[in-house]
């Protein structure tokens, strides 16, 4: 017997929305029935070819339909999401926000996805956040982390105009999430765009300050476990090497440091594999959507 799937919609049929659609096509909990944009586009045409209902009249059209989605994925802009979010809430629609608007709680599926499965609105933070926060959490769950810092390097070709115009928001939001979601006492984030050809695959480095007596084996094991959890939804998420431990140093306040070197290869669903930064966003959003849908189905059973 097939269970009833939860109806969903994607708002924003750009590259992110299209890649997300590809990932959700085979979902057992979610049924994406419509895709909307604010203008006719290739993305809408692609969705139409797949047999989905589409409209270039945006959220106005979506909310005027007899049958409303229960979950909406928003891949537009922070400004658009800020305008749309109250309307979704009013209609009782849960929103998964892939924009930098950051209205709802910040979620990383491997860290706190289950806690927010019933939240009316969740923020997917940033690509760099999705790639690194699970690791910060893996370290902070076995030892105190007074400070964590992440460096996200992405291919220039994978950074769209929105990212480029809002680098400052990226560094702020990611740094904040490294602390709030990752569990470090203070967080800092850096993003670097690299134009090398062929494009570089997304790379992320996580540095955590740890006490001089840290149980290195426990940290290493926790990191490996977390990588396996993230790989459940991002198969191309890998460690370049075992976590690297540096001895305590005076300039680190007598603390030591653990460095985790990551590579995020995209799944190539719609976006090219080097764009691991975009892939991990859509994969994480799909994962959260599934958790929300499963919770809704469970509540009805």
């Amino acid at each position: 017997m097939t269970r009833q799937k939860i109806p969903a919609a994607i708002v924003g049929p750009g590259n992110i929305g299209t890649d997300l659609l590809a990932k959700l096509r085979h979902s057992e909990a979610l049924d994406v029935r419509s895709v909307v944009g604010v203008a006719e586009s290739e993305g809408l045409a692609r969705a139409r070819d797949l047999g989905l209902r589409t409209s270039s009249e945006g959220v106005d059209w979506l909310l005027a339909q007899d049958e409303l989605p229960e979950i909406v994925f928003e891949a537009t802009s922070a400004k658009a999401h800020a305008a749309n979010a109250p309307r979704y809430a009013e209609a009782g629609i849960q929103a998964v926000d892939l924009t930098p608007a950051h209205l709802g709680p910040m979620v990383s599926p491997a860290v706190n996805g289950h806690e927010h499965a019933a939240s009316p609105n969740v923020s997917m933070i940033t690509c760099g956040g999705q790639a690194t926060i699970p690791i910060v959490h893996a370290v902070s769950s076995v030892t105190r982390v007074p400070y964590a810092e992440i460096i996200a390097s992405i291919a220039s070709r994978s950074a769209g105009p929105g990212t480029r115009a809002n680098i400052d928001e990226f560094t702020h939001t990611t740094g904040q999430a490294v602390a709030e979601v990752g569990g470090a006492e203070r967080g800092k984030a850096v993003i670097v765009l690299n134009p090398v050809e062929p494009p570089m695959i997304m790379r992320d480095t996580v540095y955590c300050m740890v006490g001089p007596d840290t149980d290195r084996a426990a940290v290493t094991e926790s990191v490996h476990r977390m990588v396996d959890r993230v790989r459940e939804y991002v198969p191309g998420y890998t460690l370049r090497a075992d976590p690297q431990f540096d001895d305590p140093a005076p300039e680190w306040g007598g603390n030591g440091r653990v460095t985790v070197l990551l590579e995020v290869r995209g799944n190539g669903d719609f976006l090219p594999p080097y764009a691991g930064n975009l892939d991990i966003m859509t994969a994480a959003a799909a994962r959260i959507g599934e958790l929300m849908a499963t919770a809704r189905i469970g509540a009805r059973a």
């Binding site: 670097v192 480095t205 370049r240």
Partner: peptide, 18 residues
Amino acid sequence: ELGYVGGQEDMIIDVAVQ
């Protein structure tokens, strides 16, 4: 050779490990 740019000092550790 890998075309690293300013800011990617973390990749120095990666290269050394490799």
